[in-house]
Each structure stands twice: as structure tokens, then as C-alpha cells.
Design a protein around this nucleic acid. Structure first.
Length: 187
DNA sequence: AATGGTGCCAACCGCGCTATG
DNA sequence: ACATAGCGCGGTTGGCACCAT
């Protein structure tokens, strides 16, 4: 069957999946301490783990690697995530690169569970970072911004172009000096 | 106390990109 | 120039913890 373009990431035989145990964590940490991060594919066997390399990499990057700060996101982190998301959209790895100690997975989870709600409660569409509007017929329902609806607002039309209704929600991120290059990139 | 619903997060899946032979 | 392997990313989900009924 030549349609098989890609083999599965792990051999079918005896590969463990699901939550990592303490013992597995210790094996992975010990191996990487001794040998450094290298070839993920060959790591599991060398480290005595019945996992695929991908699973090891994920566990290391998202949970075990040194320098991770886990726990509650601060308000400043939240605001930074919102800023960065407004510029970078769902490019979580780029966002994570600007939040020391946070992983892309963690930020993505945090976004989906907390930040989206926070923005919605502010009347901001989390996908576009634009104002949500109330649909009059459908009481209280928030909809994504539609330009033709804005004329009913009391604000002057001078600010229309930006779609950011600053008197309702001040967007602190319009003048960010951000770029898309990795933060560590040499000038 | 038992059951059903919801929120959360660690981990998985599949795809695209890059390196390598 | 091409095929393949491996890695990294982002979307998605399984299953646990917690809460309401």
C-alpha cells in the first residue's frame, strides 16, 4: 500500500501513552542531564523509556525542562499575552518566546480557558481583538464587530478606521514595537 | 450519597517545514 | 534533484477534579 506516506512516530510495539509517571520523569531527566538534548527519536530506548520520542520531547519541553515557571499567570502576563496575540494571532510558540518560563502549550491552554473569557467580558472579540457589538433583537448576545453598526454609537466617526472603540476599551497595544523575528536573533 | 455537568490541562494527532543522505 | 526522517507547531481530546442537583 503505497499510500502510506508517513509511518507512525513510534513503533507499534509496547509504546506507552498517557500520563507520565514519576519514574519516567526521573529517567528522562537523568538521561538529558547526562547526555543533553539530542536525537528525540533514539532517546527513549537509550534512556530506558517505553515512549516515543515525540512524547519525551513534549514532556521535557512542557514540564520537566529547567527554568519553567508554572502556576498562576499574573495580570501582567495576561496583558502581555493579549498584546502579543493581537499581533501574532495563534502563533503560540512566538508568544511563548516572549514570556520567560512559559511554554506554548501552557499559554495556549491559558488562552482558551481564561483569556478568551476575559476578553469577551470586556466586549472584545478574542479572535480579532475588535469590539463585539450587541445584537439588539437577540438580547444581550455579543456578536463580532460589524462596521455598519458603529454609526449608532455616540462617538465621533473620526476613529472609525481603526475599529478600536477606545472609549469602551483602551487597547494598550497599538504602538508596540514588536517584530516577528525570534527574540534571540542577532541584529 | 449518587449522579450528571463543566472546566481544566497534560498529552496526543496530523501536518508542514527543514535537514540530511 | 529528490526522498525520507525527524522535529516543531497548533488544534484537539481524554480523563480527572470539582461543582451542582
Amino acid at each position: 500500500m503505497g499510500a502510506m506516506v508517513r509511518s507512525p512516530c513510534c513503533e507499534k510495539a509496547h509504546i506507552k501513552r498517557g500520563a507520565w509517571t514519576r519514574e519516567e520523569d526521573h529517567l528522562l531527566i537523568a538521561y538529558i542531564r547526562a547526555h543533553g538534548e539530542g536525537c528525540w527519536r533514539s532517546l527513549p530506548m537509550a534512556a530506558g523509556l517505553l515512549r516515543c520520542g515525540k512524547s519525551c520531547r513534549l514532556r521535557w519541553n512542557n514540564y520537566l525542562r529547567p527554568g519553567l515557571r508554572r502556576g498562576i499567570f499574573t495580570m501582567k502576563e495576561d496583558e502581555l499575552i493579549i498584546k502579543l496575540h493581537s499581533r501574532l494571532s495563534n502563533r503560540w510558540s512566538l508568544i511563548a518566546a516572549r514570556l520567560p518560563g512559559r511554554t506554548d502549550n501552557e499559554i495556549k491552554n491559558h488562552w482558551n480557558t481564561h483569556v478568551r473569557r476575559k476578553l469577551l467580558s470586556r466586549g472584545t472579540d478574542p479572535a480579532t481583538h475588535r469590539r463585539l457589538i450587541h445584537e439588539e433583537k437577540d438580547t444581550g448576545r455579543l456578536l463580532p464587530y460589524k462596521q455598519e453598526k458603529i454609526s449608532s454609537s455616540s462617538s465621533s466617526s473620526s476613529n472609525r478606521e481603526g475599529l478600536w472603540n477606545i472609549q469602551d476599551y483602551r487597547c494598550p497595544y497599538l504602538n508596540l514595537d514588536l517584530c516577528l523575528s525570534p527574540p534571540s536573533q542577532k541584529p
